[in-house]
Amino acid sequence: MTLDLLVFAQAGGQEAVDKFANATSSGIALGAIYALLALGLVLIYKATQVLNFAHGALAALGAFFAAYLATVINFPGRYVTFLPTTVQWILSALVAVLITAVVGLVLERLAIRPMIGEPLFSVVMITIALDIVIRTITDDLIGTNPRPLGDPWGADVVNIGPAIVAKSELATVAVTIIALVGIALFFRSRYGVAMRATAFDQEAAMAQGISAGRIFALAWAIGAGLAAAAGIFSSLFPRSIGVSNTTAFFAFRALPAIVIGGLDSISGAVVGGFIVGLAESYAGAYFIGDTWSFLGLGFAGVMPYIVMLIVLIVRPYGLFGTEEIRRV
């Protein structure tokens, strides 16, 4: 599909190349946020078999923390004034991610742990209820108006070839790559191996002396942290004016990504995220004008779901997901 569009773009001359480049860069930036969200969702699913519907709420909460830390109390920037402002802001964002990770830890302990062994959808319903609770509190904390995050990149842009890319978009992609590498490394560490073992066979892992509870908590903490990172980057220029009461809905847009990649595949989550981002961006850029008016209003928004359906028809467990072995 990409190749076809490229050929099409070249046939249309410079203007078409620009359009294609911009749609691609914007799709990659969007996909990076989806990938971050999907990473967290998949990590939690892999370790605990729970699809976390409170992910968006956690993302908004994390973005709020970042906004509060960076613009209201300037923490930890006020103590490290000798550092450049960019570093100060990154520190604030990191602290926000850490706080959200702790929130994830607490949530797992209080609401998810007691549900071990209960029917799958009761646990999913709990996360939906958690979403209501966290979102209500976050909305109240955010207050009347959206809160800009005060990031150092502002509205700065750089030209990469024919594409005009915002610096914050570059940062998003960078963070996604760092997160992916970090998680890949984590899975090689002691705890990472334990998590993989738990995901593979909980009882066998416990027999080996792995505390499944601790693994669950860890997965939720990392997942919540990734959600916060995604929330922060989805609240930056040009995507948004700041964290607001609609930030939480962003996570629902990432759901097709985890299905396309496969619910239990880390690399699948990232690939799925970029596929969704590009699909949305290309659909928005090319299915426009009178020729495409039969597609109605806002077709780009359902494009990820259509891609998801096509993938599922071909591969019912996603591109990289493990096929469940069904026994009688």
Partner: peptide
Amino acid sequence: VRGIYLAIVTLGLVFIGEW
């Protein structure tokens, strides 16, 4: 598809329906 996959596919139905 089954389980959570089915849940997300049917959720997609809601979004496609909204469109």
